[in-house]
Amino acid sequence: MKKSLGEKCFQFFNYTFLIVISATMILPLLQLLAVSFSSPIAAESKQVFLFPVEFTLATWKHILQNDVLWRSFGVTIFITVVGTILSMLFTVLTAFPLSRKEFLPKKPIMLAIVITMIFNAPMIPYFLTVRELGLMDSIWALIIPGLISTFNMIIVRTFFMGIPSELDDAAKIDGCNDFRILFQIYIPLSKPVLATIGLFYAVGFWNTFQSAVLFIRDQTLWPLQMRLRGYFTSPEALAEVNLITGDFDFNTITLKAATIIFATVPIVLVYPFLQKYFVKGAVLGSIKE
């Protein structure tokens, strides 16, 4: 089929437009990466354009020796690992009964859960509830209130419903109970979708911020995002050592750039490998609402 001149023109502008805009998705991070490897003088005098100027490792040395930052990193690792495991368990255990036709209260429970998607829990009563539970200033406040994402639960339920029921009929005749059917038949069959929601949960826990703002006053329990925010609002805290040693190989501009990269690197590193799972999950979730 021959293309008209108009179509060729459109194609050219469309490609150019998409390439330019998609470049803006990554360029800000590259710019900050460049700033974090540049000298403070270069950063301050606006010489850095995507490539480091007067290359120095001083900023990164300072960042990587920052115990407070590593502590927050540890908190975030903990809530990401423990939170993801617990979330997966809760999600699967909730999704499985709701996918079974022999489970009588399936419909009313599903309705009650979907209602919570339209009516979000209001901030203050939510805050007071978590406080009443004694979770203030506890690391569990960063995990438990976000255990189940309804969106992810529906993805898993939809997938479970698509598994042919002949499989578990056969298993039942062989004497399998529901727990064994779930853990030995359904979960192994659902690996791709479980990988997807596992990644959704992990990214969610890695980015935990609002829970920390609401429930964590104790700075030693701050997750990474909260620490980052703390450094943005008072960057002096980042450069403290700077004043003592008189070491001026970095300044708050290069330090802030480096902390942003520090908090982003794990996501950007796993991203290319896991991207296909993310997309699959988002499509699955949108099929049946």
């Binding site: 255990l93 909730t94 009964p97 919570t116 829990a121 209001p122 509830t129 978590v130 438990i144 209130p145």
Partner: peptide, 19 residues
Amino acid sequence: MIVPGLLYYIIFKYVPLFG
């Protein structure tokens, strides 16, 4: 199986809603 999930939705969604 559904007990943990139900408790979660009651405590963290419905209690604040009625709160």
